[in-house]
Design a protein around this nucleic acid. Structure first.
Length: 607
RNA sequence: GGGGACGUAGUUCAGUUGGUUAGAACGCUGCCCUGUCACGGCAGAGGCCGCGGGUUCGAGUCCCGUCGUCCCCGCCA
């Protein structure tokens, strides 16, 4: 209630409770800013009016919890504070009750400079009192509620699935939960409810959703936590487009709940095109696309520069960076992570001096403007042997190496010079600030050079394209061959991308047991192995499985983008550090020998 | 597994070429102050310079190791 008082409440009696945000002591007149989740109101205590209350108010300290009882008064015109929503009124205290005292916290919620994250995480309950965190958590609630309401209105049932389930060796590492009743065996926490939601389709709940925690034991990033929340959904008999409509619908509702009006439908792009234009399968459309400028050079130019002219020569344009100093140019090279022999030419001026014709052609083709930075990425003329070069794929591995290296550099440059080009700054125009994209037609399989076998690019339950069934048939006959036609099989898989962040990923699933068997075979699994791992699921597929498909979106990431947060930790109340530690509760910890004995577990000491 | 940044008062930071007693702001404590809202004034307390070792007459500063936080690559069906 602290933040709700307005001039219309003037004259009313009020009781407000909250934390002492700030005390300003003027001797016999003192002011208390009282804070709760709704905001801050100024409480006035005057010794002339009530000496006993004033004396008590003088003992108040930051973060004490108090009740202030009094009447709401319009402030005199010269004491109105236009910077706060409650600034036209104040509460004149008739009584102050100290509900609880507080030790001096290591930092104050009202501090302007942000304390280091280690301290914030250890004292998370203090950190969460901050305005910004209260706003993030409130936004999260509003977004989740809007999605629940929207999907419910579209006939989806929210159905829970188990957290203690079966370990599947594919994909991310599992978090394991030992069984006491059956020592030596383990449950796994779900990486996603994938198989359960498909089984729900087989069970006749033709529209399912769940806002559900998922667990993956992999290394963390700013946008990756070991436990995270997905908006998971699945529907029967859909075309991919129908799934997209549903997603666009709930995202519109979710963004509306956060005060942002977006207008579906979102643009669509083939995976191959995303790679060619942006070097990544989650393009940030706010930044310029690549330009392939290999035709701007003569054959002699390319030879002198030791560039392979049969591979793309990528011009990365970063707008409005301005003239770079020698040192700034030198700093570009370390930002470049070369994959498969790709090389960077960061000094475009030098190329301009040596090859003025080429530079002019490049400038024209990229549409460069005054102050834009151009950096070239190309393949080495002495490129090593192409070990895996499926002829069927539109983008070959050698090309991919160049596109991918350039894609990472494009983002790194845009990040580094964000202050100069200002592209990431919010304009207030949702169509510019939030660039959504569907990326479609992912490859079904990717060749794993280490394991010497094909892996599912999405997951093994994804349906191949109807037109590519022939390639699948042909490909399963040579599953150990990186040149196999499996490379050309497209999946009915799709990602929804926002500003370069993958929000979610889904697919139309396989509903026929014979095709599922072929996929497992392509992945190098024998019938026996497939039965062992997924037997229950394969069996279910044989009892009248409807065609079905779905998607899962990261709730944390959606809220992160909506709130402008720099990391997921800002939108998760109790997150973990980069080493997957909870600094507040201090987890994980060793456990008692007795607990281990019950579970039949002994710890192998790391050597 | 690899690369990088950081670690100094409760907090945010400064600390020169290695040189006497390690500073500032905010916060905190006490006193003063009747219209402040980043209130103001006076006085004061507060330091294992992350930890361990080394070089040196002398280390916050240089070297090695280690711990912690953050970012990136790998990894994340």
């Amino acid at each position: 209630m602290c933040g709700r008082l307005r001039s219309s409440d003037a004259g009313k009696k009020a009781v407000i409770m909250g934390w002492v945000n700030k005390r300003r002591d003027h001797g016999s007149l003192l002011f208390i800013d009282l804070r709760d989740r709704s905001g801050v109101t100024q409480v006035v205590v005057n010794a002339d009016r009530n000496a006993a209350i004033h004396e008590k108010a003088e003992t108040l300290r930051n973060e004490y919890v108090i009740a202030a009882i009094g009447s709401v008064k319009l402030r005199d015109a010269n004491t109105v504070n236009p910077n706060m929503p409650t600034g036209e009124v104040e509460l004149v205290a008739d009584d102050i009750r100290i509900l609880n005292e507080s030790k001096l916290p290591p930092f104050l919620p009202s501090d302007t400079a942000l304390t280091n994250e280690e301290t914030r995480l250890k004292y998370r309950y203090i950190d969460l009192r901050r305005d910004a965190m209260q706003f993030n958590i409130e936004t999260r609630h509003n977004v989740a509620k809007a999605i629940r309401d929207y999907l419910s209105s579209q006939g989806f049932f929210e159905i829970e699935t188990p957290f203690m389930t079966r370990s599947t060796p594919e994909g991310a590492r599992d978090y394991l939960v030992p069984s006491r009743v059956q020592p030596g065996t383990f449950y796994a926490l779900p990486q996603s409810p994938q198989m359960f939601k498909q089984i729900l389709m087989i069970s006749g709940f033709d529209r399912y959703f769940q806002i559900v925690r998922c667990f993956r034991d992999e290394d963390l990033r700013a946008d990756r936590q070991p436990e995270f929340t997905q908006i998971d959904l699945e529907m029967s008999y859909p075309q991919a487009e129908r799934v997209w409509e549903v997603v666009e619908g709930f995202l519109k509702a979710a963004f509306h709940a956060a005060g942002v009006e977006i207008e579906p439908s979102f643009p669509r792009m083939d995976y191959d095109e995303a790679i060619r234009l942006y070097g990544i399968d989650k393009p940030d459309l706010r930044l310029p696309a690549f330009t392939d400028v290999r035709d701007c050079f003569t054959a002699e130019n390319l030879q002198e520069l030791a560039i392979n002219g049969n591979l793309p020569v990528i011009a990365i344009r970063t707008p409005k960076v301005g003239e770079l100093s020698r040192k700034e140019r030198d700093d570009i090279k370390p930002m470049f992570h070369s994959k498969g022999g790709a090389r960077v030419y960061e000094d475009f001026k030098r190329i301009g001096n040596k090859y003025p014709d080429a530079a002019a052609a490049i400038a024209k083709k990229t549409g460069v403007e005054e102050g834009d930075l151009i950096v070239l990425v190309a393949g080495s003329a002495q490129a090593g042997p192409q070990t895996a070069m499926p002829a069927h794929r539109k983008v070959t591995p050698a090309e991919l190496a160049i596109y991918a290296s350039a894609g990472l550099l494009r983002l790194a440059l845009a990040q580094k010079y964000a202050d100069r080009h200002g592209i990431f700054k919010k304009t207030g125009d949702a169509a510019k600030d939030f660039r959504f994209l569907w990326v479609t037609n992912f490859p079904m399989f990717e060749w794993d050079e280490g394991e010497k076998q094909w892996m599912a690019a999405h997951h093994p339950f994804t349906s191949p394209h109807e037109q590519d069934m022939g390639l699948l048939e042909q490909g399963v006959e040579s599953v150990n061959d990186p040149q196999s036609t499996l490379s050309a099989v497209r999946a009915l898989a799709y990602d929804v991308v926002l500003n370069g962040t993958e929000l979610g990923s889904g697919s139309i699933r396989i509903h026929r047991q014979d095709i599922q068997a072929k996929i497992f075979k392509a992945l190098g699994m024998t019938d026996e192995e497939a039965r062992k791992r997924f037997g229950f699921f394969l069996e279910a597929l044989e009892y009248g499985t409807p065609p079905h498909g779905g998607i899962a979106l990261g709730l944390d990431r959606i809220v992160m983008i909506l709130t402008g947060a720099e990391s997921l930790r800002e939108v998760i109340p109790f997150p973990k550090t980069a080493r997957a530690v909870d600094l507040m509760v201090d987890a994980p910890t060793p456990v008692d020998e007795r607990q281990l004995r019950d579970l039949g577990i002994s710890i192998r000491k790391p050597s």
